[in-house]
Design a binder for these strands. Structure first.
Lengths: 187, 187
DNA sequence: AAATTTTTGTGATGTAGATCACGTTAGGAA
DNA sequence: TTCCTAACGTGATCTACATCACAAAAATTT
């Protein structure tokens, strides 16, 4: 189960066995069933979560009760309410399990500890963050520039797996389209 | 002129004079007039730019000739086509000057050199990138959740300075609204 | 297998915002 | 000043997509 995490780190930086064991000792483990919440709006957000198994969504629900999905997370991805996590403020997002889930939990304290003790870990997280930034930029561009249909097709091409694991309603909410419109687009 | 850069670094990490001088030696300087391009779509992107003076926009122009502004950058901000810069691919963005501009230029090589030589610089860039990620997430949320009018008002509240320095047409393009609609909203 | 809940499709209608088309005003340049 | 271009406002019309409403199918639970 920790193998996935090690491989994940080693995509960016090589680690000795001791180094990895040391890193791993800063994580805790958590298992959740389908429909359970990892974070709920209003919570304190103590952890960043590395997904070992399963599938989650991070979403914002507005006053009218409308839900917008900010991120899906599956194996090999990190998920949290980053705003709340990094700034130690109240969560504005809900993060809940679309499938049964296993995650590795990294507290902000442990993250900063690892980053300051091990330069290569700071390097790792810098690179991760850079990639994340680029991905979000391209999502913004897609929201500004593309029609609902184009966004649908882009996503289908980029993450076809998602369409097998997630109901269309949620895909719609991620794309910023109504469920009905999405249904018409895909037929 | 380099004072701004030093202050910028020191918001996150303290530096000795020698450290800062060393850092600064990895930057070059560039001045541009209004309407000049720092980056054009198709270019190789050699630098990340720290804005010392002036105002720029980074935008994407689609096949129909429609321009979407991804980012404004003014004093104390960084701007580049990050996708192209980090991945060493062709620029897809145009970056051009809305006002006369002075920037400090950091090549990818020098950036990585500084990051690997000085742990505190790697730390600095990790934190910058984290903040950037959070800011983009909240922009995505605003695009998914808010109406044109709400987005307009959020921006007006968050960056009122922008409205004094940038024509409404460009604000509209940043918000993802037509010029005409924005005009009707603000009256 | 029956009951319940979730997911999906599809018609009818409504609306925010786009697009087109002008005219006016304001800034820069010669 | 005069010329020229960029910025801004505003009406008329159009359209992509939302919303409402209902039904069928699929998945989950008992």
């Amino acid at each position: 189960m920790s193998k996935l995490l090690r491989e994940h780190f080693e995509k960016i930086t090589a680690l000795t066995d001791q180094e990895f064991d040391y890193i791993l000792s800063h994580f805790t483990t958590k298992k959740l069933k389908k429909h359970q919440f990892l974070v709920q709006a209003g919570d304190q957000v103590k952890y960043d979560y590395f997904v070992v198994k399963g599938l989650l969504k991070a979403s914002f629900t507005n006053n009218d009760g409308k839900e917008h999905i900010l991120q899906f997370a599956m194996e090999d991805w990190w998920v949290s309410d980053f705003q709340a996590y990094f700034n130690q403020t109240e969560a504005i997002l809900d993060i809940d399990c679309i499938e049964a889930v296993e995650v590795l939990c990294l507290s902000l304290t442990n993250r900063e500890k690892l980053c300051s003790e091990m330069h290569k870990i700071e390097h790792f997280f810098r690179r991760k963050s850079n990639f994340g930034y680029i991905a979000l930029q391209s999502r913004i561009l897609s929201l500004l520039n593309s029609s609902a249909k184009e966004r649908y097709e882009e996503l289908l091409q980029r993450s076809p797996i998602l369409f097998q694991r997630v109901p269309k309603t949620l895909i719609a909410s991620y794309l910023g389209v109504s469920r009905e419109t999405l249904s018409r687009l895909s037929s």
